[in-house]
Each structure stands twice: as C-alpha cells, then as structure tokens.
C-alpha cells in the first residue's frame, strides 16, 4: 500500500497532534522521528512525550511509518522489539480506535498521536502535517 495513495483527499491526510495545552507548538519531521523511533522520550522543549500508535495492521499505522521513515510495519515492529528487549525503551501505547486516541489526547497532556485530519477536535493541536 503506498502511503500517499492512502490519503486520497484532505480528510484522509495524516496529521500529528498533541494535547491542546501542550507547550509544544510545532515539530519538525526529524523531531517526530526522534520520538516515534525511541531516540528521545521528551519533546525538544524537555516536556515528557507519550507517543500513541494505531493498532497493528491498521492503514493509518502503515501509512504513518512509510511517510515518516520509509519503513514497513514489520521492520518498525522489529525495531521496537529491539529497543524493548535491550531495555532501552518501551513501545508506544496502542490505540484500537479513533475514539481511544481522542480520549487519550484529552486526558494526557504529554500524549502525541497521528490521526486523520478529519478526526482532529478542538481539544487537539496540530504540530505536524504530512504532505
């Protein structure tokens, strides 16, 4: 599945969001990679980052990592297993639905997630958009 083919119109566009009150206003692609590839556990401004993943096999998850680092979901799973079993980091929290992501972002000021543009609510703040 081509990541950009997944985003057939603007409502499908993947955006990265944080809690509305987060002190993070914007992230570069490099800074987003640092968080979702486990290199850093904090945002650039030092506040804690809690990344959230869609469930395994979801189109959003596949598209996200293809757009982010050009890797398949299987390679990403292997990468995170390496970090887990070496004791370096734990995997991002898993969400099984848009509702779960929205709930997590409402309740957790440190949460960061990727979501379709159509599902962004006014409690969220967009910090990165994929073309």
């Amino acid at each position: 599945m081509a990541a950009k083919a997944y985003m057939t119109d603007k409502s499908d566009q993947l955006v990265v969001v944080v809690h509305g009150t987060s002190s993070t206003e914007a992230l570069s692609k490099k800074e987003l990679i640092d968080i979702y590839m486990g290199r850093f556990k904090n945002f650039p401004n030092g506040s804690t980052a809690t990344p959230i993943d869609y469930f395994k096999g979801s189109n959003q998850r596949k598209a996200f990592y293809q757009l982010l680092v050009g890797k398949s979901e299987r390679k990403i799973d292997a990468y995170w297993s390496r970090l887990l079993f070496s004791g370096r980091a734990t995997r991002p929290n898993k969400a099984t639905s848009v509702a779960e992501i929205q709930q997590e972002l409402q309740q957790n000021p440190s949460a960061i997630a990727y979501i379709n543009a159509a599902n962004v609510t006014e409690e969220m703040k967009i910090v990165y958009q994929f073309d």
């Binding site: 292997a78 297993s81 390496r82 079993f85 070496s86 004791g87 370096r88």
Partner: peptide, 9 residues
Amino acid sequence: TDYRYVGHL
C-alpha cells in the same frame, strides 16, 4: 550484546 538472545530480531 543487549539483544543477542532475541533470535527473532
């Protein structure tokens, strides 16, 4: 060294 036992990786 830190994941040498994890054959799956």
